[in-house]
Design a protein around this nucleic acid. Sequence first.
DNA 1: ACTAAATTAGACCAATTGGTTTAATTAGCC
DNA 2: GGCTAATTAAACCAATTGGTCTAATTTAGT
Lengths: 193, 193
Amino acid sequence: MGYKHNIEDILDIGTELIRTNGYHNVGINQILKACAIPKGSFYNFFETKEHFACEILNRYGERSKKMIEGFLLDKTLTPLNRLKSFYAMIIDVSEEDNYAGGCLLNTLSNEVGRLNDEIAETANTNFLVWIEVIANCVLEGQQQGEIIDSFPPEYIAEYLHAGSYGAFSRMKVTRSRTYLDNWYEMTFNFISK
Amino acid sequence: MGYKHNIEDILDIGTELIRTNGYHNVGINQILKACAIPKGSFYNFFETKEHFACEILNRYGERSKKMIEGFLLDKTLTPLNRLKSFYAMIIDVSEEDNYAGGCLLNTLSNEVGRLNDEIAETANTNFLVWIEVIANCVLEGQQQGEIIDSFPPEYIAEYLHAGSYGAFSRMKVTRSRTYLDNWYEMTFNFISK
DNA sequence: ACTAAATTAGACCAATTGGTTTAATTAGCC
DNA sequence: GGCTAATTAAACCAATTGGTCTAATTTAGT
C-alpha cells in the first residue's frame, strides 16, 4: 500500500512550481505546502534543494525524451515534418500554458547554470540526450534531401533546440507567441533544402 | 561636491551582481555590503528592489545601445561585417567573463519576465530599442545585397539577437564558447546572401 | 548664517530561507 | 506477533529576506 506521500507527487508539483516561478523564487516550504507534506518527509526523500532540482531535471529529461521520440520517430511523416510538428506543438503548449515557464531545463540552465555545478551538469546531460534524438531525425532528413547538409546533424539539432530557448526569453516578456512563430518560420526556412 | 554615496556606483555594482547571480539570488543586503552603503541610503534612492531592477535595466539598455551603435554605425565596414564584428565581440567578452552571466536583459527576462509586469515591460522596451538599431543595419545589408531579403529587417534583427540568448543558455551549463561559436557560424551562414 | 530638504546611518521588523532534530507512527519481513 | 527500518509530523534553528523607522548629519539655496 505504501506510505501516505509518494515521491512522484512531490516531484510533479515541484517541477511545475520551479518551472513557472524559478529556482530561487520557490522555497522548500512553498513546495511542501502545495504538496501538503511535512518537512521531515521531504528531507527523508531528498538530501537538499539542489539534489531535488537534479531529480526533477532528470525526471523531466526522461519524460521529455519520450515525448520528443513520440514525434520524431513517427514514420507517417517525413523527418522534416516530424521536426516541424514537434516545434509547432511546443509553441501551442506554451500558449496554452499562458507563456508561463517554457522548458524547465532552460529555466534552470539560465538561472543556476553558472552557479551550481551539479545542476549545470544534470541539465547539460539531459539536454544532450534530447539533442541525440533530434540529430537522428535531422540526419534522416538530410539523407532524404529535405534538410541542408552543410552542417552536421548535431549542430543543426543544437541550433534548433537552443534557438527555441532564445525565443522563450522573448516570450516571457512579451507574453505572446509572436516571436516563437517567427522563430519557427525562419528557422525551418533556413534548414530546409 | 555631493553626498557620500552616488547612485551610479550602486547601479554599477548591482548590475554586475544581478547579471551574474540572478535576481532572486541577490539580496538587497548583499548589494549594500558590496557598495558599503547603509540601507537608508539605498531606500532613499530606490523605492523597491523591483524599481531598482528597472533602473539597472534602463541603464544597461542605454549603455548597450551606445555600444551596439559603436559597432553597427561603423562605416568602415560593410553592414554584414559590422553585425559579425559585434556578435564576435559579444562572444569574446563572454569568454573573458568566464561565461558568468551573459546579458542582464536576458537574465532578468528569463528569471522574472513572466512574474513581474514592470520588469518585463522595461526589459522588452529596452530590447526593442536595440532591435531597431540592429534592424537598421540589417536593412542596409539587404539594400547592398549582402543579407537575404526574404524576411523583414526587424524579423532578422530579432532572430539574431534572441538567437544569441538561446546560445547563452547553453553557454551557462557547458561553461564554454563552443555553442556560441557554432551559433555564430550557422546564423551568419543563413542570413548571408 | 539660517532653513529646508536630501542624505546617511543602522537598529529594527515580521516573514521566510534551507535545513535539523526528536518523537511518534507505519510498513514490510521473518 | 515482534522487530527493524522507513516514513510522518511538526517544533525548532540560525541566517537572511525585503522593507521601515527614527535620528543625526550634510548639503544647497537664500
